[in-house]
Design a protein around this nucleic acid. Structure first.
Lengths: 145, 145
DNA sequence: CAGTATCCCACGCGATACTG
DNA sequence: CAGTATCGCGTGGGATACTG
């Protein structure tokens, strides 16, 4: 069975595009990473994933559950206890994610350096443009243009 | 040199978070994939990456250039000719991306099936709630809540 | 504890048109 | 050909407060 070219991310209408959009949001990857080693309760997840508000956490978890990547188990006790764990499908995402995570952690510095160099160049160019004026040439600090 | 735990994506202020935000946008991954096998000109890139308008293409390419992942070569001819290629740093991103891409392409269907099942469940639950009424219970078609 | 409920806004992105 | 320039909107997501 050659399923190599069945899907193509570069194609506009390819379903695999949707996957990228899904895991490309701000919290999905982080939650999966957090759940990679242990089953976690809601508040534990909150504590582990820095910056996540209950709202985004719930949204993302619901979406992950819907897509079969995470399972949610409710214990009928009081106070409530809810546990989240990766499904097998979710765990299968761990490898690719680990690769990305590792890349991110090992190459941040190179990226940051490249960025600084680029900004320095741009800044120098701006100054050259405005002759010897002191026009403060903004170094384009934002991520995207 | 043990640099294992120097960075942690789960930490709010970790720089590696930024990397995820960068490659998590709508076009970055696609452009890198497109450039994985060949050097491409602007319009070729546009043709390959389905749906990309010149604006987003330029934005993303500039950002990639700034971060040292893509290099831009301008040929002083008319009509203009500009070639984009991955830098070595950019090429190093190819492996993790390929892993994600492969996962996306091989597991879309499972995700889609899980989603349909979840929606069917939710829909059934809604109908049960409204007794035998014909209240159209919307199956929550959107990606996120 | 595990969420909901609102309000609100930045901004990523698309559409469209124009230029060196 | 390889971009810029504008305009506008959809919505992801932050802040805050409330609830079973």
């Amino acid at each position: 069975m050659d399923t190599e070219r069945e899907y193509d991310v570069l194609s506009v209408d390819c379903p695999s595009r949707m996957i990228l959009n899904r895991i490309g949001d701000r919290w999905t990857l982080l939650i999966i990473v957090a759940l990679s080693r242990e089953v976690l309760r809601f508040s534990q997840l909150r504590a582990r994933v820095g910056g996540a508000t209950p709202k985004v956490l719930t949204q993302t978890l619901r979406a992950l559950e819907r897509d079969g990547l995470v399972s949610r188990e409710v214990f009928p006790v009081v106070p409530p206890r809810v546990e989240y764990r990766l499904t097998e499908l979710g765990r299968s995402l761990l490898e690719p994610i680990a690769a990305v995570k590792k890349w991110a952690e090992t190459h941040v510095e190179e990226v940051l350096e490249a960025r600084e160099r680029a900004d320095a160049m741009a800044s120098a160019a701006s100054e050259a443009m405005s002759s010897a004026s002191s026009s403060m040439a903004r170094p384009r600090a934002g991520v995207l243009g």
